[in-house]
Computed example of a mutant assay.
Amino acid sequence: MNPDIARLTARTLLGQRRTILVVLLALLPVAIALLYRFAAPADADPERFAARALLGGIVTTTILPLVTLIFATGAFGQDIEDGTAVYLLATPVPRRDIVLARFLVAWAASLAALLPAAVAAGLIVLGGSGPGIVAGFAVGIAAGSFVYAAAFTWLSIATSRALVAGLLYVFLWEGTLSGLFSGIRFLSIRQYATGIAGAFFDLPASVFQPRLEPAPAAVLAALAAALMLLLAVRRLQRWEAGEAA
């Protein structure tokens, strides 16, 4: 990874106004967890709420992809908007290094914004119960963010409407179609994340049941991330300077 590109990307992402929105969005699970602790009925099942509704539901289904989408599309999108992509592509830095640096910074920023809040929310809801649930979803969120960051990095290079295309993927494919057709689970980053998380706990199906086993989820996640990064590098290698102007 090129350290200069990484530093430039970090400054770009942290300097955007959308970063404030990301932080507020990432803190939402903590607010929900506190509300649960103070307002949940006496017979509520904290393990079911944490695994199914909060970490496996709201966080993994909505907040995780949105946070990663904002950071990953901003990594290249800002250069295109302000015209600095021309100067970046004119440097002798290999396109592979540019993609890798942008991708890793977007992934790291997503984890820094989301992971502490998700862990804190899980601990608030569960207290001392549900061993493995928080750790499992922490690993699942990290893996899911890795794949999302790779996919959205490619998307930001492939189209000037990356944010819109990413939102369609998150809400239409992941949010709607994956719940209607069982076969889509093999092409769903959300299902990869929850499947990997399931390796760390064994819960009844009535509490939480991933739709993919941990091993195939991990393999599919690795293949998807590698494919997306390869496509991103290939696309950037074919990018003409005029396209970035």
Rank of each mutant, 00 (worst) to 15 (best):
T73C: 11
T61W: 12
A108I: 13
A42Q: 13
F186Y: 08
A42I: 06
L88C: 13
L100Y: 15
A226N: 06
F171S: 05
G198W: 09
D202Q: 14
I124H: 06
R48Y: 05
G140A: 09
N2V: 10
I70H: 05
V219C: 07
T61Y: 13
P46W: 03
T9P: 02
F49A: 00
L100S: 10
L14W: 06
A42Y: 10
S110V: 07
A221M: 00
I189F: 04
I157E: 06
A85S: 12
I141S: 03
E240Y: 04
L55N: 01
A217I: 02
A143L: 04
R96D: 14
Y148I: 02
S178C: 11
F49I: 02
G242K: 03
R96M: 14
P94V: 15
I124K: 13
L229A: 03
G136D: 07
A117D: 04
D97N: 15
L8Y: 04
L100D: 08
R211M: 15
D202V: 13
A241W: 12
A215E: 09
I141A: 00
L229G: 03
V119Q: 02
A120W: 14
A158L: 12
V105I: 15
G127N: 10
E240M: 06
L89K: 11
S160D: 15
L27S: 04
T84Q: 15
P131W: 15
A217R: 00
I5V: 09
F200L: 05
R185K: 12
R238T: 09
V170A: 05
D45H: 05
G144N: 01
A245L: 10
S129M: 14
S206I: 14
A10E: 01
I98Q: 12
T73Y: 10
Q191L: 09
L223M: 08
A113M: 08
I63D: 02
G77H: 03
T194F: 06
S182M: 11
R7K: 11
Y87Q: 15
Y36R: 00
A6S: 07
V105G: 06
A117T: 10
T19Q: 04
A149W: 12
T73F: 10
I98L: 15
D4T: 13
L187R: 03
P116F: 08
A50F: 01
F186K: 07
V105P: 09
N2L: 11
